[in-house]
């Protein structure tokens, strides 16, 4: 069991199809392997069809709730810029904000009847001191497989977690078919070093 005993929360947010559930599974497995109690929540079914998707990951010595309360999240891992704003009230004052530099237009924006907010990292940065933009799509391309953007984001959040690199590598190795493990390890490292 790592030193940190209090329950902490990571909120993953994005759009259906971005690999959020897979990412939160991997993070949870790594935290369990590191000795934490872990609980996570996710959405399925109608809520998933191209809609807004979140997953809560909570870890500590003994975790009760799989859901974090509003105002209590330590780290938000946002796979889409706009979704950062939608769930911002889940964050603690001194939370870490990791934003994928990716915009997916919601239907109203596509139809030309609403506009996509500009300068999202700057808006968030006015209130939160620790904001980091990750160019996950570009780094995934660099890793050799465009679909590893979610693994890049795992790499980015790994810096904030007391989990050894060996554990991450082992969990990632077990989470993907063999032919794409290498791309995912590479994507993870690019995210970790970004």
């Amino acid at each position: 069991m790592p030193k940190d005993k209090a329950t902490k929360s990571i909120l993953l947010a994005g759009v259906g199809g971005q690999g959020i559930l897979r990412a939160s599974d991997i993070i949870s497995l790594a935290l369990m392997a590191a000795g934490y109690d872990v609980k996570k929540s996710e959405v399925h079914g109608m809520a998933q069809r191209g809609g807004s998707v979140t997953s809560h990951v909570r870890y500590g010595e003994k975790v009760y709730s799989p859901l974090a309360a509003r105002g209590s999240v330590d780290i938000i891992l946002s796979f889409e810029k706009l979704e950062t704003l939608r769930y911002i009230d889940y964050l603690k004052k001194n939370a870490f904000v990791l934003i994928n530099d990716e915009a997916v237009f919601p239907p109203a924006v596509n139809m030309g009847i609403a506009s996509y907010p500009e300068n999202i990292p700057e808006i968030v940065g006015k209130v939160f001191k620790k904001v980091k933009v990750v160019e996950a799509s570009a780094l995934a391309e660099q890793a050799g497989e465009a679909r590893t953007a979610n693994t890049v984001m795992i790499g980015a959040v790994s810096n904030f977690l007391d989990v050894s690199l060996e554990v991450w590598e082992e969990v990632i190795g077990k989470s993907f078919p063999e032919r794409i493990v290498e791309f995912n390890i590479k994507a993870f490292m690019l995210g970790r070093n970004a």
Partner: peptide
């Protein structure tokens, strides 16, 4: 946990406010 805390303590939890931005909904 927030719902229970607010109901029992009878006061809303402190939440961070950003400068107002219109957030377009993202329904399925």
């Amino acid at each position: 946990p927030g719902v229970i805390a607010e109901a029992v303590k009878r006061r809303p939890a402190k939440k961070v406010q950003l400068s107002p931005v219109e957030i377009p909904p993202r329904p399925p």
